[in-house]
Design a binder for these strands. Structure first.
Lengths: 350, 350
DNA sequence: TGAGAGAGTGTTCACGTTAACAACACGTCC
DNA sequence: GGACGTGTTGTTAACGTGAACACTCTCTCA
């Protein structure tokens, strides 16, 4: 049984020809007040008498009134929609950010429109933001973990509330990000503390800020411990890349500790090491990054760094809401510290 | 350098006091035509002379004109936005559907608004749909893989273009789904063909249509082969649940072939089997479902069933666009056949 | 040569809402 | 008792766009 238009017209025998949704004027008429009073009830204005308020609310319920956000957006200039620009990816980090952000935003009464983008280059991002602007979104979040995204952000309207998630730490846009460097240091120090004389690093793609942050943190931890960083092995984020690099690492008998830039890489490395007969953690210890749901079931269960994506999402939303509320586009930045999750892929060297 | 309002006013020394976006009337004035002509250019109406069109386009470019979709939605009654209702989850299946759908939709010129929902019960879904309706979306997609979602769909406005992804096959709403049953049969037959006398099944949660579809397909394949189905072991979708059930399976020495309802379960089962000293695939063969990116790097690499999420998304979009275009809410349904991906977790029983 | 078709363009209105302001009732204070 | 707040309500004017309709040309054909 559909509900549209079913009970609306037969109240006084005067059928409304089109099954059009009830508007604010219909509610006003039924409640015997002006439409402006209805609007006041809608927006919780103080100066409405309790009885009037009740009458209006009853009328709204009876007509199944639903405010038309398009009309609202038109007259106010802004809609209660936040636009998100994200790459079309199922990568765990970005995907987690996205769903976490949606949840936070809808809790705050904002709808979320997503503009997926095939590549995070300047043009694609600009187009995506344009699509959002056509909808008159209240603000925009860009999940921009790669360098190419950065320059796009220089050419944004200055009055648009904007936050980057995982963007360029060097740039002066409002930014919320996982503390990549701290996480990497945590991982590296954990391996050092286990007794390893040095720690190798398999990094993500060079153009990801996550990668450079993790490299920096790893290097800093080593230098703090007074050890010379070995060369970085660079890869992309896939298990396949980890596997390829793992075949190199497996052949180098002095490699006893590896910090992989994410869990997928670690998974590939584990496979390569296993095929070479090098046992984890007895021969080689390894730490990942992300704490994907599978990590606890790797062979062996993977010690890794867990970022708090929910916290990132909440922080990003708050920064954005502050900008929307005040109208001032600040450039606050916030950094969420990740946490070490200890499992079984780390041991003392023998 | 921000771009809003920077170059707009100083053209003829007449500064526009508020940095308001250019509207269709501004373009009209600059081009020396009526706003309706501009509207015609915008909507590709035929009866506009080439020179006029060019003048208008030039004016649009000069003013950086961007149509206001809120105004459009107001006057037309529908916006070019499709609402998606999805559970707040990073589960691989639903998450993949979501991003795939976003891509298809934005290719078709539609924005996508996502309403995340904590649980797929009737109330949550109704609220989410309501939020979409407030935005006057052109249509709604519900990713509704669980039974509780079904009843919510009975109470939708009948004139709202609506498609379910992964919904109840019994119900008469338009539906696009992976052919769970066919996939499960494929997996089961593959194990049977390898020489196993029967195949055990570890299922997902009972209230997921995916689960019941996969159970049905598994059972059908066994019955076609004339073998009595062993009892179903039911679990949720997590590796942890797979691990728990795996501890049971590992103890039963006559279990040689297992079809797990998804790859995560398979991962947990693999771990349990390994801890019990049962070697995959020599002692036990196993097939999963989903082909998550990690599956090829499990120990051993997992033979699994790969659904084509992109195809599902495209099909869903097409069904929806057809409804939006014609105004008729049909109840087409489409089913996308998955594919077997052979790796190393299946062998002949010894 | 005049009627009619049709291309190109303009005018007016409506969509549903909020903001600004006006109006009115009622009480208080000097 | 009159001026003045203050709480409640109504009136009017936007917001930017598309649809309906009207108008002016120009071209064609009888």
């Amino acid at each position: 049984m559909g509900r549209a238009g079913a009970t609306a017209g037969d109240q006084n025998g005067k059928p409304r020809p089109p099954a059009r949704d009830a508007a604010i004027t219909d509610v006003a008429q039924l409640a015997g007040v002006s439409h402006q009073t209805v609007s006041r009830v809608l927006n919780d204005h103080p100066n409405v008498s309790p009885q009037t308020r009740l009458r209006v609310q009853a009328a709204m319920a009876e007509l199944r009134y639903r405010p038309n956000n398009a009309a609202r957006a038109l007259v106010t200039g802004r809609s209660k929609v936040i636009g998100v620009v994200a790459q079309n990816t199922t990568l765990f980090g970005p995907a987690s950010m996205l769903t976490a952000f949606e949840q936070s935003a809808s809790d705050a009464g904002f709808a979320v429109a997503v503009a997926s983008v095939r590549a995070l280059d300047r043009r694609s991002i600009a187009e995506a933001v344009d699509r959002h602007l056509a909808q008159r979104v209240a603000g925009v979040v860009v999940i921009a973990p790669v360098a190419s995204a950065g320059e796009a952000l220089d050419h944004m309207p200055t009055d648009l509330p904007l936050v980057c998630i995982d963007g360029d730490p060097q740039r002066s846009t409002p930014l919320v990000t996982v503390d990549q460097s701290a996480g990497a240091s945590l991982a590296t120090r954990h391996l050092l503390d286990a007794g390893h004389s040095t720690v190798w690093h398999v990094s993500g793609p060079d153009d990801w800020f996550d990668s450079v942050g993790r490299i920096a943190g790893w290097r800093a931890a080593l230098e703090r411990a007074g050890v010379d960083p070995p060369p970085v092995l660079s890869a992309d984020w896939s298990p396949a890349a980890g596997y390829r690099v793992g075949q190199l690492l497996a052949r180098m008998s002095d490699v006893t500790a590896v910090f992989a830039a994410n869990d997928h890489l670690a998974l590939g490395i584990l496979k390569a090491l296993r095929e070479f007969g090098r046992v984890v953690p007895q021969d080689v210890s390894i730490v990942g990054f992300d704490d994907i749901p599978e990590a606890a079931y790797f062979v062996p269960p993977l010690t890794t760094i867990r970022p708090d994506f929910d916290a990132v999402a909440r922080a990003a939303l708050n920064v954005l809401l502050r900008q929307i509320g005040t109208g001032v586009v600040s450039d606050e930045r916030e950094t969420i510290a990740p946490v070490l999750v200890t499992r079984e892929s780390v041991a003392a060297p023998r």
